[in-house]
Design a protein around this nucleic acid. Structure first.
Length: 207
DNA sequence: TAGACATTCAAGCTGCCTGT
DNA sequence: ACAGGCAGCTTGAATGTCTA
């Protein structure tokens, strides 16, 4: 018997993709996602291509795309979309890891370098929301699990704070766009002020 | 007008049945 | 074992309606 399989049963697809056979049938029926060959006795036989397609679909699906949306994609578009997600993820992972490394080693210039790479393509808001917030969230867990100390936390939050300050200064306008005033304050004894500093940035950005 | 609450819809799962 | 149909259930998102 050949070790290289040429056709796959619906059970094979279930095992390889983690999508239940019943669900695969439903998708097939509702969205024509796959159109397998059939044996004389009407049993589905999937090609390697079908398997590939299902695995791609699974990846998109697990990344939050609705099955109804995926079904609208043309066959050629699916691998492109998959690559987009993978690229985006690995770039993001690399950058996140760089930030974490800079924290562990108290490496200020690594922090700045990573930031400077990001700022080429992203707005400060995007960097703050997509990188700094997750980073700070993770700090919490790392601290809880004794992986890092408060010194690390202070080191990185201060660098982030710096970035908020400099960006706030950059967008600050001498003339206000409207005459509204905002008073920002934290609850008593709340020491984590980054959120409020960022809000201040957003307000300045809007004049 | 914001927030609470209700309704609707898509998607998926499970169980049951019948047929091959 | 697999196919396919049906009913019933859950979940989450989107949308609509009511009310303080």
């Amino acid at each position: 018997m050949s070790l290289v399989k040429k056709t796959f049963s619906i059970k094979d697809l279930e095992n390889l993709s983690g999508i239940k056979a019943h669900t695969i049938r439903i998708w097939e029926k509702r969205y024509n996602l796959l159109s397998p060959e059939r044996t004389q006795t009407n049993i589905r036989l999937y090609s390697l291509l079908s398997l590939q397609k299902l695995l791609n679909i699974t990846l998109l699906y697990e990344n939050g795309l609705k099955i109804s949306k995926i079904a609208q994609l043309k066959n050629e578009e699916i691998p492109l979309k998959v690559r987009e997600i993978i690229d985006e993820k690995s770039i993001k992972n690399n950058m996140m890891n760089a930030f974490k490394l800079s924290m562990i080693n108290f490496d200020q210039s690594l922090f700045y370098n990573t930031y400077n790479k990001l700022v080429v393509d992203l707005s400060f808001r995007e960097i703050f929301k997509e990188y700094f917030i997750p980073l700070l969230q993770e700090l919490g867990y790392l601290w809880q699990s004794n992986t890092i100390s408060t010194t690390h936390e202070h080191f990185i939050t201060n660098l982030v704070k710096q970035k908020v300050y400099t960006n706030t200064e950059k967008v600050h306008r001498s003339e206000y766009v409207n005459n509204k005033s905002f008073v920002l304050f934290l609850p008593e004894n709340e020491i984590h002020e980054l959120g409020i500093l960022y809000l201040n940035y957003e307000l300045n950005l809007r004049g």
